[in-house]
Design a binder for these strands. Structure first.
Length: 274
DNA sequence: CGTGCTGTTGCTAG
DNA sequence: ACTAGCAACAGCAC
C-alpha cells in the first residue's frame, strides 16, 4: 500500500487515536518472520509504556515510547495498521498487536510479509542501517530546487528510476513518480541528466504538490489500502496516468501508455510528456 | 490449473 | 562506485 502520502495519512490518524495512550500488552500472533524477525522482546519490554511521540521518516512510522525506546514500523507492499476495539477477532495475516489501556488494539496485518518491525533505543536512530542511507525528505525545507538539480544532473538513468531512488529522495514510489512526471510534461524515459533547469524546477514543484495533494485526500487506495479506521483514501480518483493504460489522457485524449522500467510499470502520455 | 502482474527495498552480481 | 536484476510473499486478474 504505502508510499509517502499513505504512510503520512496513517501517522496523522495514529496521532489522533493513540498518542499518549499506555500499552498494556503486546502479542506476536505468528510464527512467520516479516522481512526480518519480529522482535520477541516487545512482549515484555513495552508493557506499561506510554506513546509519547509519533513521526514519519521516509516510509517508516516511528512510535516513541516513554521508556526511551522506539517502535519502527514499515508496511512493505501490503502492510496495514488497524485500530480495533476489544471485540476484534484476529484475521489471517495479523502478525502482531498492541493492546492499549483504553481497550483499543493496534493490529498489524500483512499478507505478503514484506513489512518490518524494529524495536530499539530511541537515541541515535538516524545511525541505524535502515536510516543512514536515506535521501532528502521531499516535504522538508531541505528539498530545494538546487537540491533536486544536484541530485539529478549527473545521473545516467531514466528520471523515473532516479526520483524513486531512496538514496536520493525518499518516499516517492511507483504511483507518485508517474504522476509527478506527467504533471511536469516529462517522459519517464528521459535520462535524469538531460533535464533542463526549468524542467527540474517544474518537477520539484510537482513532486511536492502531488504528495501534499494526496495527503489532503487521505492517500490513495489501490487494492485494499485502508486507514487505521478502515476507511479508504481517495487520491486514486485524481490519477492522471497511474493504472490508466489504454485510457484517454485527461488533458489531450491521447491513449496512456504502459511500459516497464526497472521491473516496474510506468504509465505516461507520449503526447503530453516529452 | 498456470502465468504474470502488484503500493518496497536491500542484496548480489556485473 | 555505479547500476540492473532479483528475491522475499500472498493474492488476484486473466
Amino acid at each position: 500500500m504505502p508510499e509517502l502520502p499513505e504512510v503520512e495519512s496513517i501517522c496523522i490518524s495514529l496521532k489522533k487515536l493513540i498518542l499518549h495512550e499506555e500499552i498494556i500488552e503486546a502479542k506476536i500472533l505468528t510464527e512467520y518472520s516479516l522481512r526480518k524477525e519480529i522482535p520477541r522482546e516487545i512482549a515484555n519490554e513495552i508493557i506499561g509504556c506510554k506513546i509519547i511521540k509519533i513521526e514519519r521518516r521516509a516510509k517508516y512510522i516511528l512510535i516513541f515510547l516513554s521508556n526511551v525506546k522506539i517502535l519502527i514500523i514499515h508496511l512493505g507492499m501490503s502492510g496495514k495498521l488497524l485500530i480495533k476495539d476489544s471485540s476484534y477477532d484476529f484475521q489471517k495475516h495479523d502478525h502482531y498487536v498492541f493492546i492499549l489501556k483504553s481497550g483499543k488494539q493496534v493490529v498489524y496485518n500483512d499478507p505478503r510479509r514484506f513489512g518490518l518491525l524494529v524495536f530499539t533505543e530511541a537515541n541515535n536512530i538516524m545511525n541505524l542501517d535502515i536510516f543512514k542511507n536515506l535521501g532528502v525528505e521531499p516535504l522538508s525545507v531541505d528539498f530545494t530546487r538546487a537540491k533536486l538539480k544536484e541530485l539529478m544532473f549527473k545521473v545516467k538513468k531514466p528520471i523515473k528510476l532516479a526520483i524513486m531512488d531512496n538514496k536520493k529522495i525518499v518516499g516517492i514510489g511507483n504511483i507518485y513518480a508517474s504522476e509527478s512526471l506527467f504533471l511536469s510534461k516529462i517522459s519517464p524515459l528521459r535520462m535524469a541528466n538531460s533535464l533542463s533547469n526549468s524542467e527540474i524546477n517544474l518537477l520539484h514543484n510537482n513532486i511536492i504538490e502531488v504528495l501534499k495533494n494526496s495527503i489532503k485526500h487521505g492517500g490513495s487506495t489501490l487494492k485494499d489500502f485502508k486507514h487505521v479506521n478502515g476507511e479508504s483514501g481517495y487520491f486514486q480518483n485524481n490519477f492522471f496516468v497511474y493504472g490508466r493504460e489504454n485510457n484517454n489522457c485527461k488533458k489531450c485524449s491521447n491513449l496512456i501508455a504502459k511500459i516497464n522500467q526497472g521491473g516496474r510499470s510506468s504509465f505516461y502520455c507520449s503526447n503530453c510528456q516529452k
